[in-house]
Amino acid sequence: METDDGMVISEGRVKLLKLIAETGSLNKAAKAMELSYQKAWKLVDVSNKSAKHPLIETQVGGNKGGGTVLTPYGKSLIDAFEKINANCWEFLDTEFKKYEL
Rank of each mutant, 00 (worst) to 15 (best):
A21C: 00
K28T: 13
Y37I: 12
K98E: 14
K64F: 12
N27S: 13
A51W: 05
M7E: 14
T71I: 08
L70E: 07
D4I: 13
T71Q: 11
K18P: 00
T23P: 00
D4A: 12
A29Q: 10
L16M: 07
K39Y: 11
Q59A: 02
V44G: 01
S76H: 14
R13Q: 03
G61S: 02
F91C: 12
M1Y: 07
I20R: 00
S36Q: 02
E82D: 10
K98I: 07
L77R: 02
W89Q: 13
M33H: 09
N27M: 12
L19T: 13
V14N: 07
K18L: 14
S25A: 14
L17M: 13
A40F: 08
K31S: 11
L101P: 01
E34H: 11
L92I: 15
G61D: 06
E34K: 12
C88S: 12
K31P: 00
S50C: 07
G61A: 07
S25L: 04
T68P: 04
K64D: 03
A32H: 06
A29F: 08
G62A: 06
W89N: 12
T23M: 09
K83N: 08
R13W: 09
Y73L: 05
T3C: 04
G65I: 06
W41F: 12
E100T: 13
N27K: 15
A30P: 08
F91P: 00
F96N: 13
I9D: 07
N27V: 11
L55N: 02
G6L: 13
L70G: 09
V60M: 06
K28W: 01
D4M: 07
E11D: 05
V46C: 04
W89K: 15
G67N: 01
K97S: 10
K42H: 03
D5T: 08
D79P: 00
E90N: 09
M1N: 00
L16C: 11
N85H: 12
Y37E: 07
K39D: 03
G74R: 11
A80N: 08
V8L: 01
Q38P: 00
T68G: 01
Y73R: 03
N87I: 02
K15G: 05
G66E: 02
L43H: 10
G65L: 01
K49I: 09
A51V: 03
N63I: 04
G67K: 03
G61F: 05
L101H: 03
E11N: 06
I84P: 05
F96R: 14
L43V: 01
P54I: 04
E82F: 10
G61I: 05
G67H: 02
E2T: 08
W89C: 07
K52Y: 05
N48S: 05
K39W: 10
I20S: 08
R13E: 06
L35I: 09
A51G: 03
K97Y: 06
L17H: 02
T94E: 14
S10G: 07
L70P: 05
F81P: 11
G74E: 12
E90W: 02
D79T: 12
V46K: 04
D5C: 01
I84W: 10
A80Q: 10
I78F: 06
E82Y: 01
